[in-house]
Simulated scan of single mutants.
Amino acid sequence: MTNNKDNYSIHASKLEKEILKRTSFMNNAKWFKLFSEIENENIKIHSAYIKFLLTDRKYKFHFGGFDETGFGDVSELGPFKFKEIEWLLIPDKYETERWNRNEKLTSEIIDQPLDTLEKIINLLGQFEYDRTEDGLKIYGYK
């Protein structure tokens, strides 16, 4: 039976090998600066997705609970380091379902503050990102 330290060592080794295959656009300081500015400016992001280097799927992501190196155990994702982030996607719109007992009502569509986010990104420095009809995607690696 392996212990957590062995599992972490295996994960860290796989991560380092994958990082060497990619072009890196972010580091701890840049991710921290970006997340801190979003928090400091009180920008409300209702919906976001994150993709990690060592997985093939994207996960729902909520801002908050980070420090200089990554996120703590504050969500269903558990703790992770900034260097594990392949990309972060903030969709253009956010849909909230509305219900009246068992009847589904028309969903409310909320615009997300992508223009404000893009301004912040451009003020903070060199970030690799795309703005499409799907939203704003910020790359850690390509």
Rank of each mutant, 00 (worst) to 15 (best):
L114V: 03
G64M: 09
R98E: 08
E128C: 11
T106A: 14
L53K: 04
K14C: 10
L77H: 09
N122R: 14
L136Y: 09
K17I: 04
T2K: 12
N3P: 04
Y8N: 12
I85L: 09
Y139A: 05
M1N: 08
L114K: 12
G64D: 14
K5C: 00
K51S: 11
Q126A: 10
E128Y: 08
S9I: 15
E18K: 14
L123S: 14
F82T: 06
R22M: 10
K17D: 03
K21W: 00
L89N: 11
E84L: 01
F82A: 05
R131L: 13
I50P: 04
D111N: 15
N100F: 13
F32Y: 14
T69E: 11
F80W: 11
L124E: 02
P113N: 09
T116P: 05
I38V: 13
N100R: 10
E41R: 15
W87H: 11
R57H: 09
L15Q: 02
V74E: 03
G64S: 12
L54M: 13
R131I: 10
G70W: 04
T96P: 00
Y139V: 04
I10P: 00
D115I: 12
S75N: 02
S75M: 05
D111Q: 13
D111S: 14
L53A: 03
F35A: 03
E86T: 03
